Amino acid sequence: MRLDIAGRLTGVALALAALAGAAPALAQNQPFNMGDAKAGAAAPSPERMKLANELLVANGEATSFDAMIPGIIEQAAGSFVQANPDLIRDLREVAKQLVPQYESRRSEIVQILARTYATAFTDSELEELLTFYRSAVGRKLVENRQKLLDAGLSGIQAWSATFSREMEGRVREEMKKRGFTI
Rank of each mutant, 00 (worst) to 15 (best):
I88P: 00
A52T: 02
L153F: 14
W159Q: 07
Y117V: 00
G60Y: 07
Q146R: 07
L19V: 02
A25T: 03
R172F: 12
A20M: 08
M68T: 12
A114Y: 01
E168V: 13
A120Y: 01
G179F: 02
T119L: 06
D150R: 09
K96T: 12
G35T: 14
L126P: 03
V81M: 02
V137C: 01
L153Q: 14
A27K: 14
G152L: 11
E74Q: 15
L55S: 04
A20G: 09
G7F: 14
L26I: 00
D4W: 12
V99I: 07
E93K: 04
I109D: 04
M34W: 03
L19K: 12
T162W: 06
M1Y: 03
G60M: 08
I182V: 05
L129Y: 07
G71H: 15
A20W: 11
D150W: 04
P31V: 05
A62S: 12
K38M: 09
I72W: 12
G155K: 00
T162P: 01
G152W: 14
S107V: 12
Y133A: 06
S45G: 05
I88E: 13
N53T: 06
K176N: 08
P70N: 09
D150S: 13
A15W: 11
L14Y: 08
F121W: 02
G138T: 00
A95N: 07
L148R: 04
A76S: 08
S160R: 11
P46G: 00
L3V: 15
L16M: 15
Q82G: 10
S107W: 02
G40D: 06
P70S: 05
A95G: 07
E93W: 02
M175I: 00
T162G: 07
A42V: 13
R172A: 06
E128L: 04
R106I: 04
M68V: 14
R172S: 04
E143Q: 13
E125I: 02
Q97H: 12
I156Y: 15
G21C: 01
L9P: 07
E74M: 13
A77L: 00
Q111A: 08
R8D: 15
Q75E: 09
Q30M: 01
A15H: 10
M34C: 01
S79N: 06
A17W: 08
Q146A: 07
E168G: 11
R89Y: 06
P46C: 04
Q97N: 15
G152V: 02
D36L: 14
K177L: 09
Q101K: 05
M1I: 03
Q146G: 09
G78E: 05
D66I: 11
G71R: 10
E143P: 02
A37K: 11
R92S: 12
L56I: 05
G7P: 00
G60I: 05
A118M: 04
A114N: 00
D150E: 15
M34K: 01
F180D: 02
R172L: 09
S107E: 15
I112F: 03
V57Y: 09
Q101D: 13
L129E: 10
I182K: 03
G21R: 11
P46Q: 11
E127S: 13
L148A: 10
G155C: 01
L130P: 02
P24S: 03
L55H: 06
D66M: 07
E168T: 14
A151Q: 13
I69Q: 05
L56W: 03
P31Q: 02
W159I: 10
K147Y: 10
K176Q: 09
A58L: 06
I69M: 10
K177H: 04
A151V: 13
A17L: 11
D86C: 00
R134I: 04
L14C: 05
